[in-house]
């Protein structure tokens, strides 16, 4: 095995830093929440938060492809790693076999982690993209919606007071009749409409944003979760690689095998979840084809 390949991969893995990404994800979630809050409450300074949010998005969308590229490159190099004990005498067959199995295990572990990292980062990118799109739509609509809600507020308030309705002028002329008829119609409509909702535009304003709000809420939680997953994956990857490096450089040992098994055990849950997801999605897909 080419020692420079090993060192090269070591260097790349060392340089791989997901902390900036996870930091930015947290900042994005925080700013996004602040921006939403400023949509609801006009007194907060929405402009500044929006600018910061835009900047954060830009940084994220710039950072992510670079990370994905690094991860992919490491993968492509790692795939060609083969088990060799560097500069050591060929050990007895059992040890050699154990060593090889350990190596393969660690390599597989590393590759899967790299794939997992790439997936998660890619999903974060998509989540951000879609979320931003929807958020922009809603924030574009908020202004006219707010204006309409205010006007409707005022109108409803006037109808509630009804200064002119309570007084029946009591005349026979057709004009007065028409006025009474119009007023009666308004009263009937209001009575009917009141029973459907509480008639307050405030609740309407809140109601228009709530389904969007729920979805956005879950998106933020997901983003934070994925950020954490990425951080864990990164740490595990580095740990696994250290072991692999030691195995290749210093040789097989019982301790190494123990640690490797522990890592593999930790990773097993991920592996299972992934396979389950693939299986269930494929099972669901044929139904979609029939329905869709």
């Amino acid at each position: 095995m080419d020692p420079s390949l090993l060192n090269d991969i070591s260097r790349r893995i060392r340089k791989l830093d997901t902390r900036r990404l996870t930091g930015r994800i947290s900042r994005y979630v925080h700013l996004s929440a602040a921006a939403d809050e400023s949509l609801r409450r006009p007194d907060l300074d929405g402009g500044r938060v929006m600018d910061q949010l835009e900047a954060c998005c830009w940084e994220l969308f710039g950072e992510i492809p670079l990370l994905i590229k690094s991860v992919t490159e490491i993968r492509e190099q790692m795939v060609d790693l083969h088990h060799e004990e560097n500069g050591k005498k060929i050990a007895p067959p059992e040890i050699g076999e154990a060593s090889r199995r350990c190596f393969d295990g660690l390599k597989r572990h590393g590759m899967e982690l790299l794939a997992h990292l790439a997936d998660e980062i890619g999903i974060v990118q998509e989540t951000l993209r879609q979320g931003e799109k929807v958020r922009r739509i809603v924030s574009d609509h908020t202004d006219p919606m707010k204006r309409s809600a205010t006007l409707l507020d005022i109108l409803l308030e006037r109808f509630a007071h009804r200064p002119t309705v309570a007084y029946r002028v009591g005349g026979e002329s057709p004009d007065v009749r028409q006025l009474e008829y119009a007023v009666e119609g308004m009263e009937n409509w209001e009575a009917a409409a009141d029973s459907e909702d509480d008639g307050s535009a405030e609740s309407l304003r809140v109601a228009t944003l709530s389904p969007y709000g729920r979805v956005i809420q879950s998106m933020w939680e997901e983003l934070e979760q994925r950020g954490r997953k990425i951080a864990h994956a990164d740490a595990e990857l580095k740990e696994g690689w250290r072991l692999l490096h030691r195995l290749s450089a210093k040789g097989y040992s019982h301790k190494i095998r123990q640690k490797a098994e522990k890592l593999s055990f930790q990773h097993e849950a991920r592996r299972r979840a992934f396979r389950k997801f693939i299986r269930e999605s494929r099972a669901a897909a044929p139904d979609r084809r029939r329905a869709g």
Partner: peptide, 12 residues
């Protein structure tokens, strides 16, 4: 409609 009716009321 209300405005129409109310302007009639003005005349009344």
């Amino acid at each position: 409609k209300f405005a129409q009716g109310a302007s009639h009321m003005k005349i009344a």
